[in-house]
Design a protein around this nucleic acid. Structure first.
Lengths: 212, 212
DNA sequence: ACCCTGTTGACTGGTCTGGTCAACGAAAGG
DNA sequence: CCTTTCGTTGACCAGACCAGTCAACAGGGT
């Protein structure tokens, strides 16, 4: 039996499957994720998964390429590297992250889990460019930022770490308290408001007074 | 067959078993952890595990009580709540954490994983006091701290969150880059040095100049 | 009537798991 | 030196679980 065109699936079923599969793989890794769990979560029959995707491995690789394509596309379109202000850059990354989670809830979790995937059945298929996105993102974030905005006498390395830890800490705290509210999009405004509170406080702490 | 006295085990074997089991349970949760993995990691035979512990569930519960006992003991002995300075309190908690990890590498990971354990075979046995330690620790940490040490005009809630996020972020970054160096104890001094750098920077950012 | 496409879930062979047990080596005690 | 006891082993078992298959079928198009 050949592999069938995945694009021929109905939109609903495809996204249900992809979303369920990404969430499961992200949570349990390749080996420990069962196709039974995926299909029951996606609400479809077992045969259909294999009808379209062939094998579990094929599904994983498809997901990996899909996730990278989606994230790369958004990333290249939306991130603004014009500004040399680290807060402006971070803010635009966070906004992007919210958009991505809204559209593809598990895509970021899946990508970062793939980064640590160590099952031999699957590593060679993803290892080539596995680290590209991550390294590009974290490398570029700090490239060429304007350190003269900081108060004199401040240890830039430490200050930047504190800024990054704060953003990461808030993101995680916010993600783990996920309520099942339908309108994530309405909550986003609240999250952005809180993020701005942190940014204001961090600017007051580390930026020269005339640049806050 | 009755359960045998665990304390009759040789010290070496017991700690090898407990350490291996805590690490595995912490990583995979109750259900997905296999006794085969535990024994091979601990370097002993399968029969022995069941000879001493009876069942997998009994092992888990024993571990849970053991871990709580160990942590509670250190916690009650060593944490200093005299000081009203949040940095002094945090610092003493971090030092305690280092000590605990040195003595029982996986004990903290295990406890926090038990906090999220949801397998029905085991939840009722741990749910009663599962949250005690965690809530006590995070509640007491902020109880009665001296807010007058902060710069006037600072949003205390935000500032404290930034402080906590920073400490947590550094701890995690440090834990995930664990090298297999034998002498963790010699690295601890380095970690403390870095933590103090962060504390200095955070004090400069948020405390009144006359209190830094 | 006959295909074709999409869909189902019972089924299979193989692997993995918690738990058992007959056997064994060494030490203890007589 | 024999026997009992204790700690220890790993092959083994019955059941669960798993990726992948397949016969059957629904329904639309021709």
């Amino acid at each position: 039996m050949d592999k069938h065109k995945i694009s021929a699936m109905s939109e609903e079923k495809r996204t249900a499957l992809l979303t369920a599969a990404m969430a499961e793989f992200a949570q349990n890794g390749y080996k420990k994720t069962s196709t039974d769990t995926i299909i029951s979560r996606a609400g479809m029959s077992k045969g259909l998964l294999f009808y379209y995707f062939g094998t579990k491995k094929d599904l994983y690789i498809y997901l990996y390429e899909y996730a990278n394509r989606v994230v790369m596309k958004e990333y290249n379109e939306k991130i603004d590297y014009e500004s040399k202000d680290i807060f402006a850059r971070l803010r635009s990354m966070i906004l992007l992250k919210f958009k991505l989670i809204e559209a593809f809830p598990a895509v970021l979790d899946f990508i970062s889990s793939a980064y640590f995937e160590k099952d031999s059945a699957v590593v060679e298929a993803i290892s080539q460019d596995s680290k590209k996105l991550y390294q590009e993102a974290s490398g570029k974030l700090l490239e060429g930022i304007d350190l003269s905005l900081f108060k004199p006498g401040i240890d830039h390395k430490i200050a930047i770490q504190i800024i990054l830890f704060t953003i990461k800490g808030y993101s995680e705290a916010q993600a783990s308290s996920e309520k099942k509210t339908k309108d994530y999009s309405s909550q986003i405004n609240h999250y952005i408001y809180e993020i701005d509170e942190y940014i204001t406080a961090l600017k007051a702490a580390f930026y020269r007074e005339d640049r806050v």
